[in-house]
């Protein structure tokens, strides 16, 4: 009973805050409405007994959305975000895509012949998850991890306006580096 109540509150909350993302007129509010939506969506994971994944999703979403807020305000539409703004673009096209996706997924829920559960859930799901990540799926996770890391590094390198020649001079021998902001370790 309590589980059903929590699930439906979270479901309604996730949809309501998701709608709010496109209704509010401030980028900051949109960001945190999206964060609330993610947290509502993560709570059902806790109901499934996946406490590690649930708490981790909440943790990562908070950090991610705070960083996201900075980029959303910096890069999107009106710079300060305090002026009236709209998150809606290409109204008809996005409406068609949204309705189409909903219909396909909703039909899938009802029409797919879902398999019966085979076996029982493990005693300690966090431990089982760790074993899967570090055992049978280790190669996949390592490749994904390296791929993500390489993406981050290359994105920063591409986006950064200053390269090593700016920092160390034409012969790369200039020490200490010529940085606009000095670091904290005395280099």
């Amino acid at each position: 009973m309590a589980e059903a109540v929590i699930f439906w509150v979270c479901a309604a909350g996730a949809v309501a805050t998701g709608v709010a993302v496109f209704r509010v007129d401030s980028m900051a509010r949109a960001t945190f409405a999206l964060l609330a939506s993610f947290v509502f969506a993560a709570t059902p994971l806790l109901l499934l007994g996946l406490s590690y994944l649930g708490v981790l999703v909440i943790l990562m979403m908070i950090m991610e959305m705070v960083v996201m807020a900075i980029f959303m305000i910096m890069l999107m539409m009106n710079p300060a975000g305090l002026m009236p703004m709209s998150m809606v673009h290409n109204r008809r096209g996005s409406l068609a895509i949204a309705v189409g996706t909903f219909v396909v997924l909703g039909a899938g829920v009802l029409l797919v012949d879902w398999p019966q559960r085979a076996g029982t859930p493990p005693e300690d799901v966090t431990f089982a998850l760790g074993e899967a990540l570090m055992g049978s799926h280790m190669l996949v996770m390592l490749v994904i991890g390296l791929g993500l890391f390489a993406t981050i590094v290359s994105a920063v390198v591409l986006a950064h306006p200053r390269g090593r020649y700016d920092r160390f001079g034409d012969d790369l021998r200039g020490r200490p580096a010529d940085d606009p902001i000095r670091g904290g370790v005395g280099r």
Binding site: S51, Y52, V55, L56, L59, I62
Partner: peptide, 13 residues
């Protein structure tokens, strides 16, 4: 909690 350390981290974030 079985994931108390992660919980502490999430709440402090």
């Amino acid at each position: 909690l079985s994931v108390g350390i992660v919980w502490f981290n999430a709440m402090e974030v």
